[in-house]
Write a protein that binds this DNA or RNA. Sequence first.
DNA 1: ACTCTATGTTTGTCATACAAACTGTGCCCG
DNA 2: CGGGCACAGTTTGTATGACAAACATAGAGT
Lengths: 243, 243
Amino acid sequence: MEYHDLRIVENPTLVREHALDKLRNAISRGLYPPGHRLVERELCEALGVSRTSVREALRQLQAENLIEVGKRRNITVAVISSKDAEDIYLLREMLETLAVRRFVANADENAIKKLQRIHKDLRKVINKGDVRELAIMAGEFYETILNGSGSRVIADMARQLLTRVNYLRMRSMSEPGRLEEGIHEWDRLMEAIQAGNANAAAKAMGDHLAAARKAVVTKLEEEEQQPPVIPATAGAERATPRR
Amino acid sequence: MEYHDLRIVENPTLVREHALDKLRNAISRGLYPPGHRLVERELCEALGVSRTSVREALRQLQAENLIEVGKRRNITVAVISSKDAEDIYLLREMLETLAVRRFVANADENAIKKLQRIHKDLRKVINKGDVRELAIMAGEFYETILNGSGSRVIADMARQLLTRVNYLRMRSMSEPGRLEEGIHEWDRLMEAIQAGNANAAAKAMGDHLAAARKAVVTKLEEEEQQPPVIPATAGAERATPRR
DNA sequence: ACTCTATGTTTGTCATACAAACTGTGCCCG
DNA sequence: CGGGCACAGTTTGTATGACAAACATAGAGT
């Protein structure tokens, strides 16, 4: 017999990974909205970890394009222009339609079951109207498809893009009307997958993303025309002293 | 009059960025081949920088999928399976054909001139047969197209994929025969771009990448069948003590 | 009113330090 | 002679403290 994985702690979670997750989530959830300045010292305090760990987490966020470093070395949450958002959604269309195709082709029995379960929960959550929970379920839905696609390369790429627009998706979902459309497209997608029809599934996914793209892009364009409230002094550039 | 940019040093290069570049290059050039173990202390000595900087650079490389962290926290240069390579090239096909299309559409006079210059140099270098220099020129060729595409999102994504297969590309180029094909495809691409024919350009780029994909994938498959020489003790897992 | 300066802030980088997880070696014992 | 265990060395993760350079702010001086 082989000693497989009897380790007590398989992955003694690293502090920096934990910090990374927390920061990613904070950005996705809008706790740190686009343009918001991130100050190392504050993050250390907020997360209760050392600067070392925060900085390493920041480097990863930087490589993921979730944060931007300004000319003065200031770190701010990445602002996504309507143009960038459009491109991101276009790439998502390419990647994720490819991913569903592979998902259908590789057809893992368990994965399909899991997807069905999530899909059902999704419907329930929608009726409840809890946007926050919905976002999580939707995330799991995508994640299941990506994992089932059997390609790490595609999955990683798609995940990266998804993360970048997470905040926008979240806001877009609280928009009235968009939800009803969304669930209908999901239904079609689920049906096609169950039927093992790759073309239909890819089409459904593509339509879904195209619709989402339009919603997100037009919203961003509106905001770019008439920028939203500027809180006091646009605090993204200054080196605000304490008192 | 406005003080534009008279800064003596616009971007006082950060140590960590410098380290990052060096490491990326070392991996691309095969100085650290796939599977090679990277030890922080050694990198510090080799680069002449502190562990802090090396670690931050490593986190970025990690996010770029150029290195892998093992279960025991060991860091090794990422090994690309034939399957992964195939997917990467497929994605490159999607992304870079899109990029050329945009390049043709956006048609920046300067960018086209630059591309022509590089293309000419490329021919010269090929006749010289210097693989190392060729790789650099080819890199500039891609870079020019990506920059001219006008989409940061697409360019970043494509760059990331390109970097991941850089080492493979390099080796593949030293393969006899592949070069002659390559230059022919480049000629077609250049012609199409000059003619402003987006479809033809995209087709040429796609064909080029498809051919490169086949070359790289079959080579990798061969090696996977019959793994290459294992140098002494397969030193990628141990925590080699000093003496 | 304007400029200059002192002071505080933030980031980049380095040097240390130490615990935890591993590894290899060699010694001791049966 | 073989087996196993303890010890020493290695590597990584994390925390601290320190300091320079680049800025920003506010207050002092003219």
